[in-house]
Design a protein around this nucleic acid. Structure first.
Length: 361
RNA sequence: UGGGGUGUCGCCAAGCGGUAAGGCACUGGACUUUGACUCCAGCAUUCGAAGGUUCGAAUCCUUCCACCCCAG
């Protein structure tokens, strides 16, 4: 019962969110241990090892808070379970979400196991998400700060994980987190929010993946006419709905921008369309690798909302679950539904779970 | 070789004697724990070239150059 008996491992990234998470738990009287994960050994484009920089902040913050800290290295696991998957999806011409996989395989699997081995009662992270109760079931709830909600990345968590997890800042708006950090004078209080692939950081995406995958240039065809309108430098550099990077200039007919409409990985052809055309929109999609927070789908058929890309607004849909897969009918057509991205289901504040888009129609 | 047409930013494209619109592309930034989407900003001292007329020209004149079309 005594909080002092409860040991909690906090995953520290070097940013404000995890720092404040640790700070809050410490304030509440828990036995807090900060652990920094080192999962990517390479330096960034400028030759800077971002992990070193991050760890410096972790050390400073932990000293300020007065908690012990450790570092653990899951580079091998990250490479094998996340990065290999990431590359394979790109080879297939899909658009993977490595951070979804990172949460599933690293943070809430390898890292969680590590924390429990340290005799921790819980693993805490700085995610903007909440854990609720529904009788004997745990619920994954959106963070109260709608703008920062990160449940999209966490839908693979199940009952076992949630029972051992805490999200200390999930019920706070970002502004409040910043304020707490500032008042506690935490070293990372004013650090810019990190973006980019978790653990890898902000990169020139094309340049980055060109280090791992061979690029094969080819033609860009107008999906409407089949005529060549440009050249691409490699299909993996493009995602459905993308505008930037096509390099297709004006012509005499229209003055609208071009968007990626489709990829033909067999023929190495990128199809583009000019303007917000119907071909960019889908009315349904197939989803595989389903994972439900409750352990199973609510029913075989259910209505909910679905988010198809991070920070995209979720929209109404009807889900048919069968043989571990789902067919999702959108109530309104959706733009740029992309294979490899996750479809995450919600009912109000509750994140039900989700899966990976296989095909959009 | 005759006849006609066109040459304005990487690509389209306004302008028609008064001191270079706009769109696309591109670049930078904002947003963002996935590559986007979106938003904001920047982007031709110069109008195929050289002369000339004029207070003043991309806009008028002359010559030249390039490309296109129709004849042959």
């Amino acid at each position: 019962m005594d909080r002092f008996d409860k040991k909690i491992v906090v995953g520290m990234s070097g940013g404000v969110d995890s720092a404040v998470s640790a700070y809050i738990l410490k304030q509440k009287g828990y036995d807090v241990v900060g652990v920094f994960m080192r999962n990517w050994e390479e330096t960034d484009d400028e030759g800077i090892c971002t992990a070193d920089e991050d760890y410096k902040y972790v050390r400073n913050v932990c000293d300020q808070i007065g908690i012990p800290y450790y570092t653990v290295n899951f580079s091998k696991e990250y490479w094998n379970r996340v990065f290999e998957y990431f590359l394979e999806e790109l080879r297939l011409g899909r658009t993977p979400n490595p951070d979804v996989m990172c949460n599933k395989e690293i943070k809430f699997k390898a890292f969680l196991e590590f924390a429990l081995k340290l005799d921790a009662s819980y693993l805490a992270t700085g995610h903007y998400a909440r854990i609720g109760d529904d009788g004997d079931k745990k619920l994954l709830l959106r963070g109260v700060d709608d703008n920062k909600d990160q449940t999209y990345f966490l839908y693979n968590l199940g009952q076992n994980e949630l029972a051992k997890t805490m999200f200390p800042i999930g019920d706070l708006p970002k502004s409040e987190v910043r304020k707490i950090a500032a008042e506690a004078k935490l070293a990372s209080a004013k650090r810019k929010d990190s973006t980019g692939i978790c653990f890898i950081g902000e990169r020139d995406f094309n340049k980055f993946i060109s280090n791992y995958l061979p690029a094969q240039s080819g033609n860009i065809l107008d999906i409407k006419t089949g005529k060549k309108v440009g050249e691409h430098s490699g299909l993996m550099y493009y995602t459905i709905g993308q505008r930037k990077g096509l390099g297709i200039g004006g012509n005499s007919t229209k003055s609208e921008p071009w968007f990626v409409a489709k990829k033909d990985i067999e023929k190495n052809i990128l199809y583009a369309v000019q303007g917000e055309d119907d071909v960019l929109y889908s009315t349904s999609c197939d989803v595989s690798n389903l994972s439900f927070v409750a352990g199973q789908a609510p029913t075989e058929v259910f209505d909910c909302t679905v988010r198809l890309r991070h920070r995209q607004k979720d929209r109404g849909c009807t889900v048919h679950v069968e043989d571990g897969k789902a067919h999702v009918d959108f109530h309104d057509r959706q733009r740029a539904v992309t294979p490899g991205q996750s479809a995450v289901f919600y009912i109000g504040e509750v994140c039900l779970g989700g899966g990976v888009v296989e095909k959009a129609e």
